[in-house]
């Protein structure tokens, strides 16, 4: 099934991807974010806070945003 995956980490990524039926939020996180713990990220499904075991549905919009995004001085 297809879901919209948005990774707001690093260089950013937003596109439709195919995932297996029954994939959970945590499984998708592990696939998409190579390093880092889910607790360090805001993981939203259809813009709403989610829990790790939540099973994804066809057409879901999943966004992953780091809780800490370090600002800098004017570069």
């Amino acid at each position: 099934m297809r879901v919209l995956m948005i990774n707001n980490d690093g260089a950013g990524f937003a596109d439709y991807i195919d995932v297996e039926v029954g994939t959970t939020v945590e499984q998708l996180f592990t696939q998409q974010v190579k390093s880092g713990r889910p607790s360090d990220y805001l993981i939203r499904v259809n813009r709403l806070p989610s829990h790790r075991e939540q099973v994804l549905q066809e057409g879901d919009r999943i966004s992953i945003t780091a809780r800490k995004i370090e600002g800098a001085v004017g570069l």
Binding site: N8, D9, G10, A11, I69, E70, G71, A72, V73, L75
Partner: peptide, 9 residues
């Protein structure tokens, strides 16, 4: 805001 790591996303 100096976005730092957030600039690209």
């Amino acid at each position: 805001l100096c976005e730092g790591e957030g600039r690209v996303p």
